[in-house]
Write a protein that binds this DNA or RNA. Structure first.
Lengths: 117, 117
DNA sequence: CTTATCATTCGATGATACTCGAATTATCGG
DNA sequence: CCGATAATTCGAGTATCATCGAATGATAAG
């Protein structure tokens, strides 16, 4: 059984629990492994540079995005493994053991989660 | 295609992004459909009544738990469909567009999930 | 009606989170 | 070195969240 570091989970959830950061994270997921420089993200989200830094750091500290420098820009990219880890944690701990078959899906990739309340 | 209400997603994430509330939610998931009265939850979490109310309402407003009255006690229970909806939303929007296997639940450690036997 | 129990609401306090302009660090191209 | 660009850190102000005792509402039993 998977044991979870609760505070890491809370940190990841808190990082995503903000309009701006959720939009930012989604933008990076869409963009893929290449990522985007901070400046571009700030412009697209219409957020001043210092505010943008505040939010990307929040996501970075939570381990949800990666950071790398290219020349004088800092590139941020989504860390897919981290999100999958978070989803796995939620699935393992919070999904009503058996009443809802979400963990044993063997068919299509997301077949079991297509239905939403 | 799954329709996503961003602010509802943020609200659900924020509701879970707190040590006490995550513990509370997990307790209700373990307990199952019968749920638990507020008093019992408060005692088990070692939280004063008024603080407990604050947290259960947070989860209830986010739609993650249900509330019903039995006699003079209020019973709270996990709403599994809501959590599955949240997970579906995260999977649809934030997981690298099908390129990433959702199937890893006990692979390598990630930033959000750690072993702590 | 009165008392006891369960839980919530109220209100005051302290703690974090968020925003963003100004100053600072890092890098690049002459 | 110098000027320009990318991004961060700093600091101050505002807002929202969290905690919890005391007061209030809701239900039950005698």
């Amino acid at each position: 059984m998977l044991v979870v570091d609760t505070s890491a989970t809370v940190q990841a959830l808190a990082a995503l629990a903000h309009e701006t950061r959720l939009a930012l994270y989604r933008m990076l997921v869409e963009r893929g492994p290449d990522g985007l420089p901070a400046g571009v993200i700030a412009e697209r989200l219409n957020v001043p540079p210092s505010s943008l830094t505040f939010h990307v750091q929040h996501l970075h500290r939570a381990g949800l995005i990666t950071q790398r420098r290219v020349g004088r820009q800092l590139i941020y990219a989504a860390d897919y493994a981290a999100m999958n880890g978070l989803i796995a944690t939620l699935t393992e701990n919070c999904c009503g053991r058996g009443s809802v078959p979400l963990r044993r899906a063997r068919g299509g990739p997301t077949a079991a989660v297509r239905r939403s309340a």
